[in-house]
Amino acid sequence: MKKEDCFYLGKIVKKYSFKGEVLAKLDTDEPDIYENLDAIFLELRNNLVPFFIESSQLHKSELLRIKFEDVDEEADADAIMKSGLYLPLDLLPKLEGDKFYFHEVIGFTVEDVNFGTVGIIKAINDSTAQSLFEIDRDGIEILIPMNDEFINKVDRKNKTIIVDTPEGLIDLYLEE
């Protein structure tokens, strides 16, 4: 399984018991839908390795307590500590309407109701307080905040996102 065919679910953050159980912090708004998985991929030395899950349950709402098959003692748990957890993209719940996954909109065209076609989304920058669309307009990078007030419509069929940005925002990037 290749990493680009998967989505990041979370990370193993600490050991839970001396029997090899671990706690994983999940990067999701709905951790309960991942409570009964059979298997998951762990990122070990830059490879995704499948691990089978013996049991799992939510622990303090945002952590998932996991007992993997063949991880039976502390040393086994140490070996997988801080590993990223990944699942195949087809296991992502489908989103409706104007909600979307970041990876899903890469390559979409952004159109502003006043400005017109802005460009193509090449990445999402989520390292700042507010996530940003990184848009390529003929080699010029334009950043638009992913603010619910700015996003009018997500048109999956035509791979377009319609935005209504404050006047002058896009022009800031185009002035010489």
Rank of each mutant, 00 (worst) to 15 (best):
D70S: 13
I140C: 10
K15C: 14
D136Q: 04
G116L: 01
G116F: 01
L132D: 01
I170R: 05
D164C: 00
S131L: 01
I161P: 00
L64I: 06
I40G: 00
F51R: 03
L44Y: 05
L169Q: 09
L174Y: 05
D155Y: 03
G84C: 10
K2I: 09
V49S: 07
L42H: 04
F100Q: 05
D27V: 13
K60S: 13
L172G: 12
G107M: 06
I121R: 06
D32E: 14
S55H: 09
E149L: 08
R137N: 13
I135G: 04
E43C: 09
V22H: 08
F18L: 13
I151M: 02
K11P: 11
V154Y: 02
D32G: 14
K99G: 15
D98F: 14
D148H: 05
A24Y: 09
A79T: 12
E62L: 12
S131R: 07
L64V: 05
T160I: 07
I162P: 02
K19I: 15
F108W: 02
Y16S: 13
G97M: 11
L172E: 15
N125C: 08
A79V: 06
E4N: 11
P166M: 00
S56P: 05
G107L: 04
F52N: 13
D112C: 01
S17K: 08
K99W: 15
K15G: 13
F102R: 14
K2W: 05
F7P: 03
S83A: 04
D136I: 03
L85H: 06
I140S: 12
D5Q: 05
P166T: 08
G139S: 03
F52L: 13
T165P: 01
A39L: 10
A79Y: 12
D98W: 09
K153R: 14
E111I: 02
F115P: 02
I135R: 06
K25E: 15
L23W: 09
F100T: 09
I140D: 07
V13L: 12
D126L: 05
A77N: 10
D72R: 14
V154F: 04
E43M: 04
I142E: 07
I53C: 05
N46A: 11
F52K: 12
Q130T: 15
E43G: 06
R45F: 15
